[in-house]
């Protein structure tokens, strides 16, 4: 959990805050968890990711620092996916920019706006080719 939060928020103190917040939320909402509707793991990670996204987008607590660490984290995440995994195979089938954009949204919590800014592309175009990429990914994975 700490690793996921650290990758999104960068700073260790913020990552610890996010994990602590998530654990408190998990405890308070434990009555809402229904194992018929999904795995505990998915539920826990979703709460953590949502907390990190809120910190990044609304509490101005994410740190913005250069592009290199981001690029490295995205590349490392992709490289660490098992070679036999469908997700990896299907991501490999996408255009490199599309793949990087999808990965940076999931791995780093980047918004459409941040992806557009980093790629120096118009927001509307980024949204539409991200959507096309997601459709392609879904088709490949189904």
């Amino acid at each position: 959990m700490l690793g996921i939060a650290r990758r999104m928020l960068r700073r260790p103190d913020l990552a610890e805050d996010a994990v602590q917040d998530a654990l408190v939320l998990i405890w308070r909402r434990s009555h809402q968890f229904d194992d018929m509707r999904g795995s505990a793991r998915g539920w826990i990670f979703t709460i953590l990711r949502n907390r990190c996204l809120t910190m990044l987008r609304h509490e101005d607590r994410g740190e913005d620092g250069g592009t290199d660490p981001d690029d490295h984290a995205v590349d490392a995440a992709f490289d660490d996916l098992p070679r036999t995994l469908d997700l990896r195979r299907c991501l490999e089938g996408l255009e490199p920019d599309t793949r990087r954009a999808i990965l940076s949204s999931y791995v780093l919590g980047h918004s459409h706006g941040e992806i557009a800014g980093r790629m120096n592309a118009p927001l509307g175009s980024v949204k539409s080719w991200l959507r096309r990429g997601l459709v392609k990914l879904r088709e490949c994975l189904s």
């Binding site: 700490l2 690793g3 996921i4 650290r6 509707r37 795995s39 990670f45 995994l85």
Partner: peptide, 21 residues
């Protein structure tokens, strides 16, 4: 709920690539 869970499962392998701290 089922479709949301399926979509989460598709990407969850990326969570496993986070460093263990």
């Amino acid at each position: 709920a089922r479709r949301l869970e399926q979509a989460r499962l598709r990407f969850m392998a990326l969570d496993d690539t986070a460093p263990v701290l």
